[in-house]
Amino acid sequence: MESSEVFKLIESKYPDALKSIDLEGIEQSVTIDVNSIADVCNYLKTESELQFTSLMCLSGVDYEDKMEVVYHLHSLLHDHRVTLKVELSRDNPKLPSVSGVWKAANWHEREAYDMYGIVFDDHPDLRRILLPDDWEGFPLRKDYVVAEKYRGWTIRKIKEGFE
């Protein structure tokens, strides 16, 4: 099934949840409303025509005016894939967790929290995953400034002119 057909199905099932569809470029994607992402995901996974059984990737993205969470889904049974996006406000990035839908989301969401500070509601165990628990700030945010010290150790600055 083509991505556009999947989008149509989502649109007919959740008309309010669908915010925009992007059919341009290499990757076609659909933007889902923050609050209904978990429901849409659940629908995509359980609907017999779709059966997106595996979550390939879940990534956070920081566009300096907004945050985005991108879901890449794939169905092993029907062999089709779809890309979902959720837009979040930068001040309070918060959305429902999909770890109840796919367990694979568990660590991906922790990573997104770790790197971007995106909070996933109802996540069973939302802690930092790659960075130390007492790390300050969210490094992959575009406005992240490296702290001068961590536990008394000086963090070295990148040399000028390093490309």
């Binding site: 470029g25 290499i26 390939m56 990737c57 991108v70 890449h72």
Partner: peptide, 16 residues
């Protein structure tokens, strides 16, 4: 401008 998600078969699994 644009985005791509590409995966390939790594010895350990799907590398995206």
């Amino acid at each position: 401008e644009g985005s791509v998600f590409f995966r390939s078969e790594n010895p350990r699994g799907e590398l995206g």
